[in-house]
Design a protein around this nucleic acid. Structure first.
Length: 415
DNA sequence: CCTCCACCGGAAAGCCGGGTCA
DNA sequence: TGACCCGGCTTTCCGGTGGAGG
């Protein structure tokens, strides 16, 4: 009977690490934000005029990733909307992420949609959409706060939207609009028209990175909600906090680390999350980043890297520019792709080196010349798998054996 | 001590897709 | 619409070089 147990039953009865893992995700806004009291108060005091029927100043918020900018704005925004309902004041906070909504038209169309207007996501003249937005905002006496997250992404494609939005108030009779821009790039103002800068940055807030202690508090708070009681080893949180503090005090990274550690413990059917799990999580996250980077590589770089994986699989711990170049050439022919010059490949090798995928040093073999000595810095199998996901490299999956012979021949001739 | 290998890496120019402006 | 420009990628050309072998 044991072996016919429902598979889900088995999984559900194994030790449970998480109570609610979503608490550790980026999208979650906690009920209170540790160590952001000053920032919350500053932002609230900027926005409080909205409740009195006045226009709040526009504001710009700066800070590196994972310093709680978005969470703070969401938090204050929610509180503002809540209190406005109680006070019978009409006040809305609308959040737009400019990474996804990155053109003037999309911003306006999305705003129109939020405001209940039916505007197609493409097709209308921009000023008509703007007019639509303006009208629907001005329909009643209300305060609208527009949050533009990652505003620097928007600015890259021209600052017209910002210019239009920042002067919208002068065309409104009943309503009031203010804009809050969030950016992790301090220099993004350089791309802006001075008039836009002065109107947009009436107020500025800077979010400093968290230190290890503060990160620890944040993790502690979330861990209580995310994990079941007593499943975390006592050193786990301080360790995660310390690791993340080393890397610019990024709370997002710290939370990722904690979540992945928990997931690894869960997968191993462990009752507890230990330091060992955290160490594995560090490796896993690192590996995931590298694989992601590999997937994003241009085709030429992929072929080159594939050649390196083959050499490495064939037992060559290290190899030279010339060797990898001959392998690369034959791979190109197999795939039907133009062969780049050795000069160019030399640069591509440097790029892979910078990314930390390979390790290359320049050595001199005296009589036998001066070259780079290259070794792969990552495990073969996962990288190879990631490379073969690219349909353009399809031909290489089966050609492997042939290539290996070619490679061996050339290299044996050499040494 | 000199040679000479096998490549390094800077400079400059060509090519190409995309965007701008009159 | 065509002339023009821009930036990224690539090629061409070439002077430079650490050290094993002679």
């Amino acid at each position: 009977m044991e072996n016919v147990r429902n598979i889900f039953e088995t999984m559900l009865t194994s030790p449970v690490i998480f109570r609610n893992r979503d608490v550790l995700r980026h999208s979650y806004t906690p009920e209170y934000l540790p160590h952001r009291k000053n920032e919350i108060e500053a932002l609230a005091s900027i926005l409080v005029p909205a409740l009195k029927g006045e226009t709040p100043s526009n504001a710009l918020i700066y800070g590196k990733t994972g310093t709680g900018k978005t969470a703070t704005v969401n938090f204050v925004g929610n509180q503002l909307e809540a209190i406005s309902r109680k006070m019978n004041v009409i006040c809305f906070v609308h959040y737009l992420n400019c990474e996804l909504i990155d053109t003037q038209y999309r911003v306006l169309a999305t705003l129109a949609k939020i405001l209940g207007k039916n505007v197609p996501m493409t097709g209308w003249p921009t000023d008509q959409v703007y007019e639509e937005v303006r009208k629907s905002i001005d329909e009643r006496n209300q305060s609208i706060i527009i949050v533009l997250d990652e505003i620097d992404k928007l600015v890259r494609k021209g600052d017209e939207v910002l210019y239009n939005l920042s002067r919208i108030n002068s065309e409104l009779n009943n309503a009031r609009v203010s804009i809050i821009g969030i950016s992790n790039d301090l220099k993004f103002k350089n791309f802006l028209d001075p008039r836009v800068i002065s109107s947009l940055s009436e107020e500025e807030l800077i979010f400093p990175p968290y230190n290890a202690e503060q990160l620890q508090d944040i993790l502690q708070q979330r861990a209580e909600l995310a994990f079941n009681d007593d499943v975390l080893d006592s050193e786990v949180i301080p360790f995660c906090a310390a690791l993340a503090a080393q890397e610019h005090g990024d709370a997002r990274k710290a939370l990722d680390l904690l979540r992945v550690s928990g997931e690894i413990a869960e997968k191993e059917n462990s009752e507890f999350v230990t330091l060992e799990h955290v160490r594995k999580a560090v490796k896993k996250i690192e590996m995931d980043h590298i694989l992601e980077a590999v997937r994003m590589l241009p085709t030429q770089n992929k072929i080159l890297l594939f050649g390196m994986v083959l050499l490495s699989e064939a037992g060559f711990k290290k190899f030279t520019t010339g060797e990898i170049f001959t392998v690369y050439k034959s791979l190109c022919k197999r795939v039907g792709v133009d062969v780049l010059t050795q000069r160019r490949i030399s640069d591509l090798i440097s790029e892979l080196d910078m990314m930390g995928i390979i390790n290359s040093i320049i050595i001199s073999k005296g009589r036998y010349g001066r070259t780079r000595e290259i070794k792969l810095d990552v495990p073969n199998d996962p990288v190879k798998e990631a490379l073969l996901e690219d349909y353009r490299l399809e031909a290489l999956a089966s050609a492997e054996k042939n290539i290996r012979n070619v490679a061996s021949l050339d290299i044996f001739e050499y040494t």
